[in-house]
Design a binder for these strands. Sequence first.
DNA 1: AACGCGGGTGATCGGGCGATAGATAGGCGG
DNA 2: CCGCCTATCTATCGCCCGATCACCCGCGTT
Lengths: 228, 228
Amino acid sequence: MRVKQPPRTRLSADARERLIARGAVAFFCEAGFGGQTRELAKRLGITQPLLYRYFPNKEALIDRVYREVYLNRWDPRWEELLDDRSRPARERIVAFYRDYAKAVLSYEWIRIFMFSGLRGMNLNSRYLTLVRDRIYTRVIRELRREYGMPSPAEVPIGEMEFELMWALHASIFYIGIRKWIYGLEIPENVDEVVENLATAFLDGVPAVMAKALKPAAKAPRRAPRPRG
Amino acid sequence: MRVKQPPRTRLSADARERLIARGAVAFFCEAGFGGQTRELAKRLGITQPLLYRYFPNKEALIDRVYREVYLNRWDPRWEELLDDRSRPARERIVAFYRDYAKAVLSYEWIRIFMFSGLRGMNLNSRYLTLVRDRIYTRVIRELRREYGMPSPAEVPIGEMEFELMWALHASIFYIGIRKWIYGLEIPENVDEVVENLATAFLDGVPAVMAKALKPAAKAPRRAPRPRG
DNA sequence: AACGCGGGTGATCGGGCGATAGATAGGCGG
DNA sequence: CCGCCTATCTATCGCCCGATCACCCGCGTT
């Protein structure tokens, strides 16, 4: 006797492809890219060979996952927000990080980001270069302006200033790592924590930046630089 | 004619086991735990079945890697260092983080830590609970003392204080992530960066802690607290 | 010199998993 | 209502990889 199979649902090629792509994101960010195509198919309620009608091989599926996750997450309004000088700089920066945290502190983003990094993709470095060029530079520029310091055009942004930005970025991103990679409990209202981190950063940064902008007041960091 | 094989080197069981264990750490932290036993054997210059003479299966090998990495990294002197009240608290804390960073910012530690987290091991959470209970509490205790605030026995450590510690931890750990997971360039002298992060933290923390210790001065974070 | 213990190897098995090929059936155009 | 297109399925291939087994051989002991 034939066992009653769940009825073979027939979708348009477009719809099915989108379903597979979305399912692949959910699956691979949980199981890692070592996850098996049979398992993915089972979760989608389809047979495994059907995946190969829409994607030539597993690698293409993974590429699609990358594109799905990396591309659809960048909000161009972030840059506008940071540039909008009708609002105080501090307010803009805090608003930005509140928003950025909301976009980035998700199970999918955090895990895919880690998996792709560990896999040796250069997607991470490309993405983070974007963050540095589009966000960090803007924040530093606006902060310098706020505190009456020379603009980046006059005095280029120093390594230590970027490190400060990295530290803020890290303290926010790590909340997601704690939750979705280590499986630790995190505070109920992440929003408040992010806001505190951003404001604490803004309170602490001028002193450090001022110090970094006066390199003369500081011992040269390494001796053997025999230059005229 | 027999091809000259690399001479079958015969070691004592102990020596061989240690060699395999060390090689497994190096191999798996690079390739991930999906790395193949044949590849590991090749790097060790032995045949793959020999692995199974010393370890019953791949999982046991991985367990050994965990033990190798997780256990040998905790320095009990850290706690003594933080407790040593003959030195100023700030100095102790900066010294600790300089040392801790040196221990933790290594290719092996960072990657194994991430891999084991993504694999769903609870080793990470166990380790980090240790860090919280042994380090964070100590740092907060000493800082409170330094700034004339009530001791943890009087006023328990609040969530926001722990979040501050997490932020510092994150900003240091993330340096390793940037380098060994994302493959990004990091500053030449990490020591200086870590020291700056620690001192900036120490400069910024009293204000935030003071605020956190006066919950009355702050709006209750959730409405349903009907108060006069 | 003979022996045997134990470290090391070659050959191979069995299951798992990516990928393919040919059969089947849903649904639209006529 | 027929016929075709194509989305989906069943069956299977071939390789990879963890694991096993039988055998080899160098060294210490007697």
